[in-house]
């Protein structure tokens, strides 16, 4: 299917960590559970540490390509391992996942589409991925605008 084909392409280009991170963040968001006060369960916090160790800490085995401010944000939040930081929420990795998706969309995806004329299956699978991503993003947007209590602009 499309996702697997794109993943193979990224493996060949040594850029698969981007897709893996994005996928793990989606899984994390799905599995995340919190109590009424919004505090994440221990299991969820452990999961967030795993993502940090794999993709975000300095010398992470699959370190992703992020701007300075963003990676510093994670390194500060996860600096203290005793107990869960209140900054760890279900949406903590969303911005980073978005950035990474944008990166492969602009750099790797056009090459993939050129070398693999997209079959219907691939096309559908990619669309599905995109739809999920968009939905997730809409949710994030809605949350942010609720927090800001300002109207979002439609351009």
């Amino acid at each position: 299917d499309g996702f697997a084909a794109f993943k193979r392409h990224l493996e060949k280009e040594f850029a698969v960590e981007n897709l893996l991170f994005w996928k793990d963040v989606n899984l994390f968001r799905e599995k995340c559970d919190a109590d009424d006060a919004g505090r994440l369960s221990c299991k969820s916090i452990i999961l967030s540490w795993a993502i940090f160790d794999k993709y975000l800490c300095s010398s992470a085995p699959l370190e992703i390509n992020l701007p300075f401010q963003l990676s510093m944000k994670f390194r500060n939040i996860f600096a203290n391992r005793m107990g869960g930081s209140p900054a760890i929420t279900a949406a903590i990795f969303d911005e980073a996942a978005n950035q990474v998706l944008q990166l492969i969309e602009v750099d790797s995806l056009p090459r993939f589409l050129r070398t693999n004329p997209p079959s219907w299956n691939q096309f559908r699978a990619l669309c599905e991925e995109r739809m999920v991503a968009n939905q997730v993003d809409e949710l994030g947007k809605a949350r942010i605008s609720r927090e800001r209590t300002s109207d979002s602009c439609d351009c």
Partner: peptide, 8 residues
Amino acid sequence: RVRTTGVV
């Protein structure tokens, strides 16, 4: 400007 990721 496109940040390259990986090897081409």
